[in-house]
Design a binder for these strands. Structure first.
Length: 829
DNA sequence: ATCTCATTATTTTTT
DNA sequence: ATAATGAGAT
């Protein structure tokens, strides 16, 4: 019965016209002294200063209390944007202006949605559970689409394809067209479709030029064919999660009207990141007939718009008041995060951009002890990594200012992910804990995707892409020939491949061997499907992986990564426990692709500037400020002036992540595509105000660089004082070898922890899931501990080993309870 | 089916 | 330089 979608609240359960001040807004329990009491008071017109409004500055308070009519909040970095958003929602609820289910609150990422939900929960308690329309554009899109799927030719149990599925599907289509899939890469076309959908363009709407540019002019046909194929597969891509609702709203005014009635208040986070499709979606929902208040509140910062390359339109934020006449615009410029120097540097930099709405951040907490932003020079990227490592250790030991700093409070923010490697190498040799954030995710791993394909096919027998993925994984002797025959047969009859396989059993089309193998697959899936309703889903999942031989396949694989993959599969099953059904789980996974991080580990974060948006750290290191890398050459080539401005905003985002300390680095030599290139300091360095910036004189081991201090062409002008011996081939080779030597030290140091959030396959020799180092060498090194050993862990204190699994120990800690930790993190007590 | 050789691209990333 | 992908050979 439970299909996993039952819990979608809809119109029926609540009155359509909610009273302006409902008698009983919620039944949910209230926190002590909570909102409900105040709501009552508010209703009685005797409004005491609500506690949740305390501590807001006047602008924030205005943004919270201006609840009716369109509002644009321009919230600079660190000005309490999330606080305003969450308090505003709490305020709407507390004053009884709407039911929780009548508020539409949209974010971009799941993380942001989660955080918002949490923080609203703190303010209003359980009431937040009644907010089904708090989520990402996509998750809300899915919800809408499940309800109205039939209007766009889908069934409500449609599958959501991810990029990988999409590419495979497009590749098939390209081949079916008789085109060379080398010359016309499916990946590229998938990208084009994505771009079109970001702009809200269907196959009929794309510009002629675009249509002609691909596949000998067949671009449009291909796009048509793709949409048709999705329909037969009962599937959607990410873009459709926005496009379909838009077309439903456009073609069914009655339905749109229902939603207008439902959503009394609409809030959008990170408005500067909305693309055209999201903008259209939003406008359809938010715009009301004349005279009806449009209670839209968009929050964003034009200076932090860094996703133009994936379709974000800063223009959306710039023209808000044209779309919503009478909009109140509130600027939040009071910064609670950074020192005066950091704000001064960031503000001066970003002032070089044109076409801003114009905000200047200020702080009232300036302090004479505040450190200026420091610019450092290094000879090459290796020295840069070494120097940053030293600075981190200095802070950690506390000999810079007498305070010991946590690694958790420091981050290295790079422009491009290849920069990370050098830092990783260095930190590994230093034994410095770090975590890498971003990159390929857990759910994108081969084994996870395979397993998911099995689950998908059990839940959705029409999922041909899933079938094709696993039909011969593990090897069953169902090679290309058989699959093609099956494919053709299915296509000819317009039936899903799994059903076609069953039919093929009764024919002589296949050789006996293939027929037998196919028969086994079909019966397996039939059996699993029959178990779907009555078997606990985690149990069924395990059963599927076992009976299909998938687990065995990896058990028999003796390659280095096999144990890790098995571990990942276990982790997958474990993470299913949190869900009610397999369907619920699949839905979650298709939309939520991020991994949690292990907060317990004290480690330096390494990430790209893009993934740092929204975060803050005491100390921020910004390496690689060189022309060509930052601003990136490609951004300049392809984006021209606006490309440069986006890079500058990225620099601004980087600077404003720092609370207390910010160290910028540039090097004279960097290896790009394998070749050493000499580089020029970034133009952004010249755009920093001298009053807030120090140029470090001391830390270059080659000396003399920043010490010149003069202003010629550039303060950071290329010093010819660098001896050219460093560019001889011999020196280069020496450098290269040195790096190799360091790399081989990987993992030899005990007590050194590495956490890869997301990054799984790529890091040197080791991989982790969600903070756990996984099976690096489970088989060849027996644990140095035994059950019962007394051990000490830096974070959890003393405890006893209760179980050992490879390099992972289960330990009963005296204070922290039972935890699973890596051997390397504990020592004998 | 598996392995080897060659070709290619190599900013940023969510859903 | 390098890593990852894909085609062709065995």
């Amino acid at each position: 019965m439970s299909n996993g979608f039952d819990d979608i609240p809809f119109f029926d359960e609540e009155p359509d016209e909610a009273p302006r001040r409902p008698q009983q807004p919620v039944q949910a329990p209230q926190p002590a002294g909570g909102i409900a009491a105040r709501a009552m008071a508010a209703r009685d017109g005797n409004r005491p200063p609500a506690a949740y409004l305390n501590g807001l500055n006047p602008e924030q308070r205005k943004a919270v209390e201006t609840v009716d009519g369109p509002v644009l909040v321009l919230a600079g970095a660190g000005t309490g944007k999330t606080r305003v958003l969450t308090t505003r929602i709490a305020h709407i609820l507390a004053t009884g202006s709407a039911y929780p289910s009548q508020i539409l609150a949209v974010t971009f990422t799941n993380k942001a949605a989660r955080e918002m939900k949490e923080r609203i929960g703190v303010l209003v308690g359980e009431m937040v559970e009644g907010m089904p329309w708090l989520g990402t554009f996509h998750s809300i899109g899915v919800k809408l689409l499940r309800r109205h799927a039939e209007l766009v030719g889908l069934r409500s149990d449609f599958t959501i394809l991810d990029t990988d599925d999409v590419v495979r599907l497009i590749k098939q289509l390209i081949q079916a067209e008789g085109l060379d899939d080398k010359r016309w890469p499916a990946r590229q076309f998938a990208g084009m479709i994505d771009t079109w959908k970001n702009k809200g363009l269907g196959p009929a709407d794309i510009p002629e030029g675009d249509a002609r540019a691909f596949a000998n002019g067949k671009g449009r046909e291909l796009y048509h064919a793709y949409q048709a194929r999705l329909k037969t597969l009962n599937a959607c891509d990410f873009g459709d999660l926005l496009m379909h609702p838009i077309s439903i709203f456009r073609n069914h005014p009655d339905i749109l009207k229902d939603y207008h009635a439902r959503f009394r208040y609409i809030l959008v986070d990170e408005y500067q990141d909305t693309n055209t499709a999201q903008y259209m979606w939003l406008r359809l929902l938010a715009q009301r007939p004349k005279g009806v208040p449009q209670n839209v509140c968009c929050v964003g910062d034009d200076d932090q718009s860094i996703y133009g390359w994936r379709g974000a339109e800063v223009d959306n934020i710039l023209r808000f008041d044209k779309d919503f006449p009478g909009a109140v615009i509130i600027k939040l410029e009071r910064n609670y995060r950074s020192t005066e120097h950091i704000l001064g540097a960031a503000g001066h930099l970003i002032a070089h951009n044109e076409g801003r709405l114009g905000k200047t951040l200020f702080t009232e907490r300036a302090n004479d002890d505040d450190e200026k932003v420091v610019v450092h020079a290094a000879w090459d990227s290796e020295e840069e990594a070494r120097a940053v490592g030293e600075e981190i250790e200095r802070l950690q030991r506390g000999d810079a200012d007498g305070k010991k700093h946590n690694l958790n409070d420091m981050a290295i923010l790079v422009r491009a992910s290849f920069q990370m490697r050098e830092f990783e190498d260095r930190f590994v040799t230093l034994g410095l804990n770090y975590r890498v954030i971003g990159g390929p995710r857990f759910y994108e791993r081969l084994e996870i995707r395979d397993a998911m394909a099995y689950f998908r096919l059990v839940c959705q027998p029409a999922d041909d892409l899933a079938l094709e993925r696993i039909i011969n994984t593990p090897k069953r002797g169902l090679g290309d020939t058989t699959v093609r025959a099956l494919h053709d047969y299915a296509r000819g009859r317009d039936t899903p491949m799994l059903a076609a396989a069953a039919e093929l059993m009764d024919t002589d089309e296949l050789k006996p061997k293939a027929r037998k193998a196919l028969f086994d697959v079909v019966t397996d899936f039939r059996r699993w499907q029959s178990l779907l309703e009555n078997t606990p889903h985690t149990e069924l999942a395990e059963q599927i992986l076992d009976e299909s031989g998938y687990t065995a396949m990896w058990q028999n694989d003796k390659s280095a990564e096999a144990p890790g993959r098995l571990e990942n599969l276990k982790e997958l099953i474990r993470s299913m426990e949190a869900f009610e059904s397999m369907r619920g789980f699949l839905e979650h996974v298709s939309l939520v692709m991020d991994a949690e991080q292990n907060e317990n580990l004290d480690a330096v974060s390494i990430m790209t500037l893009h993934s740092a948006k929204g975060l803050e750290f005491d100390t921020v290191f910004l390496p690689g400020w060189e022309e060509g890398l930052f601003p990136h050459q490609r951004a300049l080539d392809e984006g021209g002036r606006s490309g440069l401005e986006e890079e500058r905003r990225l620099a601004y985002v980087g600077l404003t992540r720092a609370k207390r300390r910010c160290h910028i680095w540039f090097v004279s030599n960097r290896r790009i595509h394998g070749l050493w290139q000499s580089t020029l300091p970034s133009r952004f360095l010249d755009e920093l105000p001298p009053a807030h910036v120090d140029v470090s004189a001391s830390d270059s081991s080659y000396g003399g660089y920043g010490g010149r201090g003069g202003y010629g062409q550039s303060r950071f002008d290329k010093a010819d004082s660098f001896s050219n011996t460093y560019s001889t081939p011999g020196w280069k080779r020496a450098q290269a070898n040195k790096t190799d030597a360091t790399r081989n030290n990987w993992g030899t140091r005990s007590g050194h922890a590495v956490e890869r959030i997301g990054y799984g396959e790529s890091g040197p020799k080791s991989r982790t899931i969600e903070g756990e180092l996984v099976a690096k060498s489970t088989s060849d090194t027996p644990s140095k501990f035994t059950v019962g050993d007394r051990v000490f862990h830096i974070k959890f204190g003393n405890g006893n080993v209760s179980a050992i699994e490879g390099n992972k120990l289960t330990i009963d800690f005296d204070r922290a309870g039972q935890k699973r930790v890596l051997e390397g993190f504990v020592e004998r007590a």
